[in-house]
Simulated assay, not measured.
Amino acid sequence: MRPLGTLVTGLAGLALWAALLSVAGRNIGTRESDTFEIDDMSTEWAEPADITDATPALEPAPAAIPSEALKPLDLSGDGDGTETGVPAEAAAGTTTATQGSNRGVRAVNPELFASPLTEALGPLERVAPLETKTPAPQRVKLVLLPRPESVEAGLIAFGLRNLKLADITSTDRMRVCPTASGGNWPCGMVARTQQRMFLRNRTIACDADKADWEGTIEAHCQVGEIDIATWLAENGWVETPPGSPLGSLSERARSERRGIFGDDQR
């Protein structure tokens, strides 16, 4: 009996809820149909605001620029500083407007002022980069020759092999030179002795192809960083052939009477 009573109570509750919803719907429809009375509104809302008092004062519009001032300028000029073709009144008006607004108006003639970009451009062409090759320094092959023997000034022997120094003429060891008193002195022997003392049996470096040549060769040789032929020419112990790069050194030694070009050096 208890479950039946619970069911009856639930159905009764649903019926009561439905009745309440129906009464609430009728009340809402009645309120929407009521007339809204404007008489209840206060007079402050009914009176319109004074539009004239709320409108701010407008600034006067800038003076219009004469149409003559907007015409293209004739830049040919007649030499007095005034462009031809522009009336004086228009020019004066343009000046006044420019000063008043701090802004100038000037028409640009497209025939006189044109951008280079307006010209038709051709297709792009790839240009090969320039090759900057640094020339490799020329390396000179040097041969070390030990125990040089001075045969004469400008001529060196290594056993049975002889080496003549380039750019100079060797001085014969039997050569004699005149003295200031009218005599002679063995300048060739003294020149050979000076070369021997300069070399002092030190190893010399020469730009020869190989160290085991046969006969006589010609090469540039040096002791340390001093060129042997240059030293002999500067001190006047040898002469130079025509066209030699050491010719100026030999001529200076001759003018200063040094070596074989001077008096007895003993």
Rank of each mutant, 00 (worst) to 15 (best):
A46I: 07
A46D: 01
A46Q: 13
A46K: 15
E47W: 02
E47G: 00
E47Y: 01
P48F: 08
P48H: 04
P48L: 15
D50G: 06
I51F: 12
I51M: 15
T52Q: 13
T52G: 12
T52P: 00
D53Y: 02
D53I: 10
T55Q: 13
T55A: 13
T55V: 14
T55D: 04
P56H: 03
P56T: 10
A57W: 02
A57G: 04
A57D: 05
A57P: 05
L58W: 02
L58I: 10
L58T: 11
E59H: 03
P60G: 08
P60C: 01
P60T: 10
P60K: 08
P60A: 14
A61Q: 08
P62S: 08
A63V: 13
A63W: 02
A63M: 05
A63E: 14
A63L: 15
A64G: 06
I65T: 07
I65Y: 07
I65S: 03
I65M: 14
P66H: 07
P66C: 07
P66V: 06
P66Q: 05
S67W: 04
S67Y: 00
E68S: 15
A69H: 02
L70D: 05
L70K: 11
K71G: 04
K71T: 11
P72V: 06
P72G: 08
P72K: 07
L73E: 07
L73S: 06
L73N: 04
L73C: 04
L73T: 14
D74P: 02
D74N: 15
D74V: 06
D74F: 06
D74I: 03
D74W: 01
L75H: 07
L75I: 08
L75Q: 05
L75V: 09
L75M: 12
S76L: 09
S76C: 07
S76P: 00
S76F: 05
S76H: 09
G77P: 00
G77Q: 10
G77M: 06
D78L: 06
D78Y: 01
D78K: 10
G79D: 04
G79I: 05
G79M: 04
D80S: 15
G81Y: 03
G81D: 02
